[in-house]
């Protein structure tokens, strides 16, 4: 599906959004004024060297930090009003962080089902859904364990299952596969593509792997640092489902080369 952000309302809209962090010695300009529109159902990837503001941008979409200036709207709802986070803007949004952030006092199953519990789903449904998701991300058999009994990669998968558990329309992912080995990572990429094709969620994913970006994205935004800003925008035209073999085609390689070239220039 090509991102056709024309007549319909964008899932995520930034209007001149700017972010400064106030540190004691000198303020950090983390993101220069940025306009952005992510279409409903689009798979957007943010790519860039570390420190270029990818996490900052994603956390602002998720309402975890407020912009210094500018307007953010999620599905038409203004995210901040008078310095107050607006709950209705965030009601349909799931987030996967760089760290798994599982709660150590909950079993894997309870962790996955936490969003459902907070939203008041019945207990039986929660368990069933958690089991299904554990299977989906490949950690079945570990549902009753404590998080500390799982490897880092498995914990990260449980975190992805947790974000999917209440089926949010918008999924924000901050380097979700950074902790995984190359093979698992590739498998998770294919899995994520499958989930996206099935559900047509709006996904914003942060990565610093060029190949991962080109493989997954409808559109890639390349960010550059000091201050963080969108340096380049690349549409990725390949049909879906994309298989592992796509990576060895000249077309794929061409986009990778183009991005790598620009990345080397800016970092």
């Amino acid at each position: 599906m090509q991102a056709a952000h024309t007549e319909t309302q964008p899932a995520i809209a930034f209007q001149a959004v700017e972010k400064w962090y106030g540190t004691r010695d000198e303020p950090v300009h983390a993101l220069a004024a940025t306009d952005l529109a992510v279409a409903d159902g689009e798979f957007l990837v943010l790519l860039g060297p570390s420190g270029c503001g990818k996490t900052t941008l994603l956390r602002m979409i998720g309402g975890l930090i407020a912009p210094t200036s500018g307007e953010i709207a999620i599905e038409g709802h203004s995210l901040w009003r008078n310095g107050q986070r607006q709950a209705e803007a965030l009601s349909d949004l799931g987030m996967v962080f760089q760290e798994a952030n599982l709660f150590p006092w909950l079993s894997i199953e309870q962790n996955i089902a936490l969003p459902l519990e907070l939203k008041g789903a019945p207990k039986a449904d929660r368990a069933a859904r958690a089991q299904a998701l554990a299977k989906l991300v490949g950690i079945q058999g570990f549902e009753k364990r404590w998080p500390r009994e799982l490897s880092g990669g498995m914990r990260q998968r449980a975190a992805i299952a947790r974000a999917l558990s209440y089926d949010p329309r918008i999924l924000l992912m901050d380097e979700p596969f950074g902790a995984l080995d190359a093979m698992t990572r590739e498998a998770m990429n294919i899995e994520l593509q499958r989930i996206w094709m099935e559900t047509r969620k709006t996904i914003v994913l942060v990565t610093h792997s060029i190949a991962e970006a080109v493989f997954l994205a409808d559109r890639i935004l390349l960010l550059s640092p000091r201050p963080g800003r969108v340096d380049m925008e690349v549409q990725v035209p390949f049909a879906r489902p994309r298989g592992p073999d796509l990576q060895s085609t000249p077309e794929f390689q061409a986009i990778v080369r183009q991005l790598r070239h620009r990345l080397n220039e800016i970092s």
Binding site: R59, G62, G63, L64, R85, A87, L90, S91, L93, G94, M95, F97, E99, N101, F103, W105, L114, P115, E117, L118, L172
Partner: peptide
């Protein structure tokens, strides 16, 4: 209490009471 855990609760739109009951108290 871990900041990352707080982020999870905020991103899930948890109420003040839920944050206490599900995060702060057990932590």
């Amino acid at each position: 209490i871990d900041e990352g855990h707080r982020d999870v609760m905020v991103s899930l739109n948890a109420t003040r009471w839920q944050v206490f009951r599900r995060l702060e108290f057990p932590s």
